[in-house]
Design a protein around this nucleic acid. Structure first.
Lengths: 342, 342
DNA sequence: TTGTAGGCGTTATCAG
DNA sequence: CTGATAACGCCTACAA
C-alpha cells in the first residue's frame, strides 16, 4: 500500500498496459488515433496507477500551457469578484485554467504580473486593473500571449478591448434626472484616477452641459463605500445642495445613500435622486433599491473567453498580423427606487 | 524589430553573454554561486533579449511548480472573496502563485478540481468549499501535494484543518440575547448542509438548551441574501414570533433584517435582535450595523500559507510521516447595533 | 494503428 | 566558479 513518493508517468502506464509511451500519450490526446482495444487497456492501467497527465510537460512541448492569467486588484469588491467568478467559469468551460494575480500592492505591479504570466507561458492574460507598460505587452505578444483589457478605456493594439459606453450612460442619467425634476446635478467620484472612472465623470459633465446644466464634482479617496459617505458629507453641505447625484460606482452610491439618509435625514428619492454604476448585488437589496447602470459581467467574460479560444484556432493559419478588436457595450439602466418617476 | 515568434531560451542568453547555459540557470537560481562578473553579463544579455525563466520547465525538473490551487465555489460572495483576496496576497508574498478553480457546478467537482491540481503538479491545494473523496486526496499526497481545508469542519489526515469554534460563538450569542432580554430564540439557516454551517446550527440549539431555552430552526435555499428574506417571512409569521435570531451568515442576516424592517415594520434591535456570522463589509454599513462574529480571513490566509512554506522546507529532512494539524480559531464578537445593550 | 527517436527549456550532478 | 551531460515527462514526426 505504501507507495513512497514517485509520481506516475506515462512510461509506467505504458509498461503496465504493455504498450509504448506513445500509445499512452495518444490516448490522452483528444484528436489522436488509437484503437479501441489499446485505449481501453491504457485507460485501465492509468486508472489503476492513478496516472494524471503532467500539464507542465505538456505545456512545455506544445508551447501552450492552458493557463490564463487574471490580473486584478481589489478582488474582494463586489463587481470585481463577480467578474472573476464569471471569467473563471467560462475559462474552465473552455478547458483553460485561471491563474489569479493580485495587484493590490505597488503601481508597476501590472507589469510584474505580466512577467509572471510570461514565466508560466500563459496562453493569455486578462487585465481588470491598471495599465501595463508598452514594453511588457510587446514581450507578451512575442511569447504568443494574447491580451484582453476590460474597462481600461484605452485601446491596446493586437488585443481585445472591452469597454462600456459611458457617454450613453451619462446621457441616460441626465435625462432621468431631468424627468424627475432635478436641477442641481452632482457627480461623486473617487480619486482613483482610473481612465474608465474619469471618463464617466467627464461624460456626465458633458451630458449635463448639453442639457444646459452645470454639474458639480467632488472626488474623495478610493472607490469605496467609505468614500461614498465622505462624498455625501461634502456634497450635501454645499450652499446649493444637489438634488441629483451620479455616483461613479454602486459601492460609492451605497455609502452616499446611507450617509444622506442617516446623517442628513434626507429621503431618497423624494429629496435626493441617486444613480449608480455596476449593478452589484447590494444595489438590489431593499435597503438601497438603487437605480443603476448594469455592467454585463457575464457577457464580458463569455465574450472574452470566446475571443481567446477562437483566436487560438486561427493562429496557425494566419501569418497575417493580429487585428485589434475593440468592443463598446451599451449599459442598461436598471430602474429601481432611487430616482423619482421610474 | 520584427522578431517572429520564437520565445527566448536560456540557450540564447548564454550565447549572447558568451557563457554556458548553466551559468544562466545559476544566475536565476536564488542560492547558486556565480561570480559577479558573469552574473552581470548574463543579466545584461537577458535584459536585452527579454528573457524570462520558463516556470513550466523549471517545475518539471524541480518537481515543484510554485502553483497553489484555490478550490472554491461562490467566489463572488463577500466572505469568500475576501478569503481569496488574502490567500492570493500571502501566496504571492511567499513566491507562490494562485490557481483559481471554480466549483460552482456539480457535486464531485471538488475531486475534479483536485485532479486539475495534480495535472499542474500544484505544490498544494486550499479547499474552501466542498469535501473531496478520500481516494483523490491520497493521490494528492502521493504527488507530494499538501492540502489545507478551511471551514470544512472535518479533519482530513496529513493536512491543515482550519476551523472556527462555533460552540464558543453559540454560547456567546445566547448570552448576548439573554442579556438583551430575549426569550424566543431562532436560528436562520440555509439548506446548503455544509458541515460547518450545520454545526453552527446544532451548537446554537445546544447552547440555548443549556440556558433552558428551546430555539426554533428554519432552513431555506442557498446561503444568500434572498434566503434571509424568505427565512424572515417564515420565522416572523410564526404564532410565537422570535425576538432574537442567529443567522448562519451575514448575507442571510442582511436579507433577514431588510425583510423584518421593510415588510414587517419591526425595529432592530428594539423588536428584534439579530446576530450574524462572518463580519462581511456590508455588516458595517450603516443600514445594517449588524452585530456579528468575525471570521479572521486574513489570519486564516496568513497561517495557511505559512504552514505550506514551512512544511515545504521540512519535507526533505523528514522521512517521518506528515503530522496532521488542526486549528480551532476563536471567533470575535463584533458589537454593533443589532442587539440591545451592547 | 503502432513503436522509435528526437527535442521542448530547465535544473542537478559532477568533473575540471 | 564554470561547463558538459543527464534527466524531467511529454509530444510529434517518421518509419514500420
Amino acid at each position: 500500500m505504501a507507495n513512497v513518493k514517485t509520481a506516475i508517468s506515462a512510461q509506467d502506464v505504458a509498461r503496465r498496459a504493455g504498450v509504448s509511451r506513445s500509445a499512452v500519450s495518444r490516448t490522452f490526446t483528444p484528436g489522436a488515433s488509437v484503437s479501441e482495444n489499446t485505449r481501453a487497456r491504457v485507460m485501465k492501467a492509468a486508472q489503476e496507477l492513478g496516472y494524471h497527465v503532467n500539464h507542465l510537460a505538456r505545456g512545455l512541448v506544445r508551447n501552450r500551457s492552458g493557463i490564463v492569467c487574471l490580473i486584478v486588484s481589489e478582488i474582494a469588491t463586489p463587481y470585481r469578484a463577480s467578474l472573476v467568478r464569471w471569467l473563471s467559469h467560462y475559462l474552465q468551460q473552455a478547458g483553460k485554467v485561471a491563474m489569479l494575480i493580485n495587484t493590490d500592492r505597488s503601481d508597476n505591479s501590472v507589469s510584474l504580473a505580466l512577467q509572471q504570466a510570461i514565466n508560466f507561458r500563459a496562453d493569455a492574460s486578462i487585465i481588470l486593473s491598471g495599465m501595463p507598460d508598452k514594453a511588457i505587452t510587446q514581450l507578451c505578444y512575442k511569447h504568443g500571449q494574447r491580451l484582453v483589457l476590460i474597462n481600461r478605456d484605452e485601446t491596446l493594439p493586437d488585443s481585445l478591448n472591452i469597454n462600456l459606453d459611458s457617454a450613453n450612460a451619462a446621457e441616460t442619467a441626465v435625462m432621468a434626472f431631468l424627468r424627475a425634476g432635478c436641477r442641481h446635478l452632482a457627480f461623486a467620484n473617487s480619486q482613483a484616477g482610473t481612465p474608465s472612472l474619469t471618463r464617466r465623470e467627464s461624460d456626465f459633465i458633458a451630458a449635463a452641459a448639453q442639457a444646459g446644466l452645470q454639474a458639480v464634482v467632488e472626488r474623495v479617496g478610493s472607490t469605496s463605500y467609505e468614500s461614498g459617505r465622505q462624498l455625501a458629507q461634502r456634497l450635501l453641505t454645499r450652499h446649493q445642495r444637489p438634488d441629483a447625484v451620479f455616483c461613479v460606482t454602486d459601492l460609492v452610491a451605497c455609502g452616499f445613500m446611507d450617509e444622506a439618509r442617516h446623517r442628513f435625514a434626507l429621503r431618497v428619492p423624494d429629496d435626493l435622486c441617486i444613480v449608480g454604476f455596476d449593478n452589484i448585488p447590494q444595489s438590489g437589496w431593499s435597503s438601497y433599491n438603487l437605480t443603476t447602470f448594469a455592467q454585463p459581467a457575464e457577457q464580458f467574460a463569455c465574450d472574452a473567453v470566446q475571443w481567446l479560444v477562437t483566436g487560438e484556432q486561427e493562429e496557425p493559419a494566419a501569418g497575417a498580423e493580429l487585428r485589434n478588436d475593440s468592443r463598446l457595450y451599451q449599459p442598461e439602466l436598471v430602474w429601481r427606487g432611487s430616482v423619482r418617476g421610474g
